[in-house]
């Protein structure tokens, strides 16, 4: 039905997260119909990203330099290190605009069932960073799943002998959230982590 080139494009687009064969076909058709405004700039951008983007050798972030902009920045607080599972978690933290420390991307979370052990995570690189002695506080920003929490405790065990404070993101009532809509577990966590009203 389609030319082999279009069929190949549809196959590739269908593999993207959130897309399937039908939306892959729609995306392919949209790109072809909008050749100048979307298809050509997109193809150039893909080539450029493939050529230039590297994994930061310090934190695991993605950047066009081997040391990413966050690690190079003199304005970031070197005493704070936030541990995240994946780069998209780092991006989420950065979107908030309220964290000014450095990051360390583990590259996943511990999961025996998925065959991800400590050897698959960048824990040795993390320990090497901590050895330099500049970090005073490690912030665990890992998900509240079994894997995320197991990883948080595991990493905390590895660094607890050092003179470093270990903290984790608070769990509880989201901004703008109504109590009535929260599940019992979230309310219970929020109550345990309650703070004085200043």
């Amino acid at each position: 039905m389609h030319s082999p080139d279009i069929q190949r494009l549809i196959q590739l687009l269908s593999k993207l997260p959130g897309l399937g064969p039908r939306s892959g076909r729609r995306a392919a058709l949209y790109l072809i119909k909008n050749k100048q405004t979307t298809l050509e700039p997109l193809s150039l951008s893909l080539i450029r990203v493939a050529e230039t983007i590297k994994i930061c050798t310090i934190c695991g972030n993605l950047d066009s330099e081997t040391t990413c902009a966050l690690c190079r920045s003199p304005e970031r607080d070197e005493s704070l290190l936030c541990i995240v599972a994946e780069v998209d978690d780092l991006w989420a933290m950065e979107r908030s605009g309220c964290y000014k420390g450095h990051y360390h991307v583990l590259g996943g979370v511990l999961s025996a069932l998925d065959g991800v052990g400590p050897d698959k995570l960048s824990i040795p690189a993390l320990l090497a960073r901590l050895e330099k002695g500049k970090v005073k506080e490690v912030v665990m920003a890992l998900s509240t799943t079994i894997e995320g929490q197991t990883t948080a405790y595991y990493v905390a065990e590895q660094i607890k002998e050092r003179d470093i404070s270990i903290t984790k993101l608070a769990h509880g009532v989201p901004m703008g959230g109504e109590l009535d809509y929260l599940d019992d577990g979230t309310i219970s966590a929020a109550l345990k982590a309650r703070r004085p009203v200043n």
Binding site: L110, A112, L113, G117, P118, I146, T150, Y153, Y154, E157
Partner: peptide, 20 residues
């Protein structure tokens, strides 16, 4: 299930097993 997998594989990651 995670603990069972680690035990079956003879994992030496005692800390990981303890956390589970």
């Amino acid at each position: 299930r995670e603990r069972s997998r680690l035990l079956k594989e003879g994992s030496s990651e005692i800390k990981w097993i303890e956390i589970l």
